[in-house]
């Protein structure tokens, strides 16, 4: 039985990755889960320089999900290269760096800082709803998206995944733009914009009022988008959005995803990602599947 998957010539031992921003750089979760059992760790967004993030409250729970408004707080690329890469390299898993910026120049700066760094893939974050400049504003207009992807791709020395926002009229349009800009793979979905109001206090729960929604409640929305994008482009797609167990993950693979990411489920169970990987294996052996390609994109 072969659980391996291939993303732009990088071989993952299984299709299970962690969604950026939900897993730090793996250090905290390594107390609960064996990182060796994961296909890849996708680290929290890294910028060229440290970012402060948004004022609290940054978190709100909603029915079957949550809102976050962290705003990409991160200690910057230098810190990441010095501290997090050596930590993650102790494990037999692939490293995917999520990169973020407020402007095209900042995306370029972080890409250049990461040249030569010992990582396997880059994930360009043009879909974070929690920053006022950059983030999602680059991922909602196909022309802008294509331009920034092209600029980053030119400087990247690793295959480039582009992470897409679901907060658009037609996600396939942005997907095609990213691919024509040079994306080697796509990942989707980032969070859906959402809001919660405390009626007793007559105030929004999040300081920034609007945040990004994730969790099991968004899964059907994410699945439909992954399905549509897989039909629209030829590059590998990493599916995510509310995946909590192996069955959820298999749905994304059957919709056409090459790999999947576990996000908010890490908060509901710090061992979730490893359990999804085990569950996929169990399903394959139970169903007599030798390779995930036998079921990938099986929904026509």
């Amino acid at each position: 039985m072969n659980t391996k998957v291939n993303i732009c010539s990088v071989e993952l031992k299984n299709p299970v990755m962690t969604a950026s921003g939900t897993f730090g750089s793996g250090r905290e979760f390594s107390e609960f889960t064996d990182l060796n059992k994961l296909g890849a760790v996708v680290v929290k967004g890294v910028a060229a320089k440290p970012w402060q993030g948004n004022p609290p409250p940054r978190i709100a729970e909603v029915y079957g999900g949550m809102l976050n408004s962290v705003g990409l707080q991160n200690p910057g690329a230098d810190y990441f290269i010095k501290n997090d890469i050596p930590f993650l390299r102790q494990f037999d898993t692939k490293i995917v760096v999520n990169i973020c910026g407020h402007s095209e120049q900042e995306y370029i700066d972080v890409t250049e800082k990461l040249r030569g760094a010992d990582v396997d893939l880059l994930e360009l974050n043009i879909s974070c709803p929690n920053v006022s400049e950059g983030g999602m504003s680059f991922g909602t207009d196909p022309k802008v998206a294509e331009k920034v992807v092209k600029a980053v791709k030119k400087r990247a020395d690793k295959p480039l995944i582009v992470k897409l926002s679901p907060n658009v009229t037609d996600i396939t349009e942005i997907a095609r733009a990213a691919v024509s800009g040079g994306a080697d793979a796509l990942s989707l979905i980032n969070t859906l914009t959402g809001m919660k109001i405390d009626v007793k206090r007559r105030k929004s729960v999040l300081y920034r009022k609007i945040g990004g929604m994730s969790g099991p409640a968004v899964k059907p929305v994410a699945l439909a988008m992954v399905y549509k994008v897989c039909k629209a482009v030829d590059v590998p797609v990493i599916g995510m959005g509310g995946i909590s167990n192996a069955e959820d993950a298999l749905e994304f693979i059957m919709a056409g995803a090459t790999a999947v990411s576990i996000g908010t489920a890490n908060f509901t169970d710090p061992g979730a990602a490893e359990k999804v990987a085990e569950g996929i294996k169990k399903y394959m052996s139970h169903e007599g599947i030798n390779d995930l390609s036998e079921i990938r994109g099986i929904i026509d």
Binding site: F23, G24, E31, K44, P55, P56, P57, R58, N68, P270
Partner: peptide, 26 residues
């Protein structure tokens, strides 16, 4: 106290503003 998600320092949700080396940070 602050609204919290992971509880282990990974998600950076439950921050409080502090002074560190004279600068404000979370």
């Amino acid at each position: 106290e602050e609204r919290m998600a992971c509880g282990i320092g990974a998600c950076v949700g439950c921050v409080v503003q502090v002074y560190e080396n004279g600068e404000k940070t979370y």
